[in-house]
């Protein structure tokens, strides 16, 4: 459904080019959950930005549902690394923002927003403003907003990085449930290998910048997954070890 065809992306700083992504080829199926993992600053976010249509590739093309992406791709919900809540809106109004844009009546969108807010564990914070929340709470509000938008594809850029361990598990569970309920395709960028293996159907290991795909590993653990216990199975350990072997190369090169 999403095809990345020979995509390269360079950024220009004055006259020097910085290559963020180089010759990447990737096909993501409908309803697939793909995790992209790699050293920080390797161009993972750039990949998401290109799928969302915020950046155009320097070479190659991104095809979304058989049409090349040119300009903003409104079929995706994008949760950026930096939370992009509107600071002058309360949590409820932020979460309800996509419904407001779609012209849903006020009473209905407040109702639906409150349901989602409960889902992400922000009950009691509906009237608060983003700057009154912790980083993790803001992330959850973003997640809630994306759920309410109900996009066909979710692009998640390190969505759970700021959360504590317990909450992370709850959010993993929620994400998997919602993705399957809404038949969503998910592209998840993370630097947490445990998280990647727990959630994904397929894990891609990126090299250091410029990013290419170093290893592709299909995770054939059964679904629905028990996000707490899946990590104790031997199959999980095998996947984890294989991926870690490859990932370690990238990190050790990084250190030299």
């Amino acid at each position: 459904m999403i095809r990345i065809e020979n995509v390269s992306k360079s950024f220009y700083k004055r006259d020097t080019a910085v290559d963020a992504v180089q010759n990447m080829n990737l096909t993501i199926e409908r309803r697939e959950i793909v995790a992209v993992i790699g050293p920080s600053g390797c161009g993972k976010s750039t990949l998401l930005n290109m799928i969302a249509g915020l950046y155009a590739p320097t070479r190659g093309r991104v095809v979304y549902k058989d049409a090349p992406v040119s300009g903003i791709n409104t079929d995706v919900g994008y949760m950026t690394q930096k939370d992009s809540l509107l600071p002058w809106r309360s949590v409820r109004d932020n979460v309800a923002f996509p419904l407001e844009l779609a012209g849903v009546a006020k009473a209905e969108r407040s109702d639906r927003a409150d349901q989602v807010i409960q889902h992400v564990g922000l009950r009691g914070f509906e009237e608060r403003y983003p700057n009154e929340l912790s980083g993790g709470m803001r992330k959850r509000a973003c997640l809630g907003r994306m759920m309410l938008y109900g996009a066909e594809t979710a692009l998640l850029d390190e969505p759970f990085a700021a959360l504590d361990a317990q909450l992370k598990l709850a959010m993993h569970d929620l994400m998997l449930r919602l993705a399957s309920e809404n038949d969503q395709t998910v592209v998840l960028v993370t630097h947490d290998l445990m998280e990647a293996v727990t959630l994904a159907d397929r894990v891609l290991v990126c090299t250091r910048r410029p990013a290419t795909i170093a290893l592709e590993q299909r995770i054939d653990l059964e679904r629905p997954r028990d996000v707490l216990n899946v990590r104790f199975s031997s199959a999980f350990k095998e996947h984890y070890d294989t991926l870690w072997e490859r990932l370690r190369v990238e990190y050790s090169e990084d250190r030299v």
């Binding site: 915020l54 903003i72 791709n73 919900g77 950026t80 930096k82 992009s84 509107l86 844009l101 779609a102």
Partner: peptide, 22 residues
């Protein structure tokens, strides 16, 4: 913040909505 504008546009905001609401 350009990210706020991009975020709204990804959520299908029209140009007028981006101006008025963001």
């Amino acid at each position: 913040d350009q990210d706020l504008i991009d975020g709204a546009r990804l959520m299908r905001a029209t140009r007028a909505q981006v101006i008025i609401k963001v």
